[in-house]
Design a protein around this nucleic acid. Structure first.
Lengths: 347, 347
DNA sequence: GCGGGGTTTTAAAGCGCTTCAACCAGGAGT
DNA sequence: ACTCCTGGTTGAAGCGCTTTAAAACCCCGC
């Protein structure tokens, strides 16, 4: 079809082929109002025939608005990947495009954000960024900013610019887990903590509150250590519990990786799950879904998060601030799989 | 510092501030030869002071060459992520920039490739793409193309354009595994197959050849089923072996996920690994590295793959075709962890 | 047959940067 | 004294598209 002599087909080529001005072609190709049905058809046909593909750089440069949303993503995180996918779709639906910038070992958040800004992004979405509140606030002064899964704690001074926040109610997540277990008949429910950070804090608080509300005795196993939120923490927690002789009948873990460590250590010590101990994770990681793991876990509504994030961006950018508060909190949901069951009748 | 009144700082602003022409500023900022040391210093100072950030779209448009390499990436694959990271660095070192395009459920390879092309990428790198050879060949006619971890099989007609190929010698990888096990004293070594595709084929061939070369009896367990290359396959294979009563003393798996399924099913059935059976995976997945898995596995040299890919691109683009053949094959390496040991003295 | 209202079309001015030919000083060479 | 360099510098022409104001057109009714 194409691939013929040398140069790439330009807008002008299409215009010439049809016998109209480049302006008309531009209008038609972007579906802008103006051109008549007939012109429209002829232009489309010619563009198709010549294999015309608009040049994004040129279009971007000429356009008054870029309609670009920058997303900072840690390419190794399945959760980030999932959010990215949904953001892609949500953005597209609103007429925006997504630009990805990966953060890697050799490329910190700041660096990645710069790239995004240089690419003319009109707004930025950051997923659980590490940057301190002050830095985020400063950035929010430059460009509309949405924080995904990251509370602002401590909140910036009220006169300082404030990023929008879209997150999951992590405190409800662990409460959900406790509910589920309590509903099954468990009363001795332990919790394995995450590292520092607002997310870990929220999940722990949710657990504590839910336990207290039910008149149950909370028991938090420490989650610090390097690195937090990994299998090792789960293994250590399991070992600590086993050393005591008396196991709780259920354990809620800060996240799925911790839960997997827990499961593994328990299995090695001949402790049946869910027969002897029930385990609940958090994140609904691909890990948890793996057939042979079948971890009961708390999931986040990634599609919802992505959708709200885009809405927040659009609200700022297109100014139709409709009902969107500065912080949006979505409810997590529980996915019951095979690691939870009623406690074994004691004996 | 910046963030002051309205508009973004442009090249012209810097030029005006220093009192030189925009042309000079452009030269200085790109480190191009020409400007004197003094001009250079003054421009740099002013740019810094004004917080100037070049506009990529404009720069891209004006530049004769884009120096952009497009990478197609499945954002959920840790292997892709790893390669991307190394490519980023390798490209940068050669003065190129990487543009990422993710392939998702709602966004196939073709779509992602188009985005890349529209972004003015001068060359494309695809990691193990699904597209048929004909399509790849066609694409290679449009733009320099490097295939990572994907052989061209069957090879396109000799007169057709041919993508460069950079891959791991998968046939040596499984041979390495067999070597290792044989060296430990194993003779009954089974293999769990992957799905269709050249990679699975190579790995199987490597196993078969290595076994035959050592006068050992090969035993291939089927790897087809949906989806191939996942834990389920490993579980099924383990069940099949257990059903027979007589277990081999070692098993090589098509990849780590299969190996993990295998490990899990064995553990559930009280089979000690590596006491009773040794297991070797392939890919050196994060999964394999997890503390509690400790899977002995064959790893690919992702940094090397990325480096070669960039070299291939540069060779095509900058025309210094130095020593680079159309297909480059890197050797895999074995990482011994805790799932392999000498076979238990029979009895 | 002409002014008026609406619909289509287009000329032209950029978007912010790069590039390249031309230009300019101030030595060196003859 | 005059030409020839040569390293520095710059004016101006784009890159391929969007956008806007204005032109062109068409159909009416008077």
């Amino acid at each position: 079809m194409a691939g013929n002599g040398g140069r790439r087909v330009r807008l002008d080529d299409v215009a010439a082929a049809v016998g109209v001005s480049p302006a008309s072609v531009s209008l038609v190709l972007r579906g802008a109002p103006g051109p008549s049905a007939e012109t429209r058809a002829r232009v489309l046909e010619a563009a198709q025939r010549l294999g015309y593909r608009p040049d994004r750089a040129a279009s971007l440069l000429a356009r008054r608005r870029s309609r670009l949303i920058g997303l900072l993503i840690d390419v190794r995180s399945p959760f980030h990947a999932d959010v990215a996918e949904h953001l892609q779709d949500a953005a597209e639906a609103r007429g925006y495009d997504l630009v990805l910038s990966t953060i890697t070992r050799s490329r910190g958040e700041d660096r990645a954000v710069e790239t995004l800004l240089d690419s003319r992004c009109e707004a930025l979405v950051l997923i659980g960024p590490d940057a301190p509140v002050a830095r985020l606030s400063e950035l929010a002064a430059t460009v509309p900013l949405v924080l995904l899964c990251r509370r602002l704690d401590p909140p910036p001074a009220p006169d300082r610019p404030r990023p929008d926040v879209v997150r999951t109610a992590d405190e409800s997540g662990t409460a959900l887990a406790v509910d589920h277990l309590h509903g099954l008949g468990h009363t001795a429910i332990a919790y394995v903590d995450g590292g520092p950070g607002t997310v870990a804090q929220d999940r722990r608080d949710g657990y504590l509150r839910a336990m207290t509300a039910r008149g149950l005795e909370p028991r938090v196993l420490p989650g610090h250590g390097t690195p937090p939120g990994t299998e090792i923490i789960g293994i250590r927690a399991a070992e600590a519990l086993l050393a005591e002789g008396e196991l709780p009948t259920a354990v809620v873990a800060f996240n799925d990786r911790v839960a997997v460590g827990l499961l593994d250590a328990l299995a090695r010590n001949g402790v049946d799950v869910p027969g002897r101990v029930s385990v609940v994770g958090y994140d609904d990681d691909p890990l948890a879904r793996m057939a042979h793991v079948g971890l009961t876990t708390v999931g986040q509504d990634t599609a919802g998060l992505a959708g709200r994030a885009v809405e927040a961006v659009v609200a700022r950018l297109d100014g139709d601030r409709a009902g969107a508060g500065p912080e949006q909190v979505l409810e997590p949901y529980l996915t019951v799989r095979r690691t939870t069951a009623p406690p074994r009748p004691s004996g």
